[in-house]
Amino acid sequence: MHDFLVSLIAFPPFFAETFILHGLLAGLLVSLMAGPMGCFVVWRRMAYFGESLSHSALLGLGLGLLFGLNLNIAVFIVCFLFASLLTYLRERRILAIDTLLGILAHASLAAGLLLISFMELPAYTLTSYLFGDILLIQNSDLWLLGAASIIVLTLLLYNWSSFILISINKELAQAEGLPVYAMELLFMFLITVVVATSIRFVGILLITSMLIIPAAGARQISKSPKMMALLSIALSMMATLAGFSLSILYDLATAPAIVVCATLLFALLTFVGKLKLKLLR
């Protein structure tokens, strides 16, 4: 299976190196999950939430390094606890949600940075966690990303209309008998899976953009939630391919190149969307 995928994508000469292929595959898998999840983040106005969640991942990394745990598991646990804590505090209405997110996100980012600075790691390690590094992607990461994609897409598809209804009107969903509280927890779980498995590739600081930018671009020309989710995947993959190629051809940082490509696609689609509106009038 692996060899087949390798041979499938290997035809442009510069993709021939294994680490590059691994990186590209990882990017495409991230796009597959982040596309539809990003739509929900956009629909539910949770952009800042995603941002905060990924910041908390650094605390997970710090704790994982400190106690010698598996980093993936440490990040996942910390992110999930963070998401649950946020959901709980939001329901209790202790502070406005943006203030709360600001406090928690930056506190965990700072704590994570402190922890990591104790470890006396070489400087490039921190940078690679913050901005992602395709050189870090190993075979095991690909399997993890693959499994995560399957879990996320399956659960998302299975609960699709319930999630949509909750995004449109939570009260209505609750009144119509949906287990809104359980669904919220499931949603937190899914977004945690996406963030925790993707940061190896895109980095803590850029994962939110992989969620939001393709979804926002897809919004400009979509007529239904499903169409937007599918377009979002497509845009994300296009940006990944383009950014990846550019980064290899011109020796650029990969994740930032992908994000810039995604932003250009977004700008293009916004223009097309506006143009279409004008022509229709």
């Binding site: 956009v42 629909w43 106005r45 209309s161 319930s162 949509i164 209804l165 995004s167 449109i168 969903a173 119509e176 008998g177 949906l178 919004r219 979509s222 007529k223 239904s224 939630p225 169409m227 937007m228």
Partner: peptide, 18 residues
């Protein structure tokens, strides 16, 4: 309603299990 979700009246009415 947020402007963020594209959905038409027909799909919205048919959404859900009730």
């Amino acid at each position: 309603l947020e402007n963020s979700m594209p959905i038409d009246v027909k799909s919205f009415i048919k959404l859900g299990r009730n």
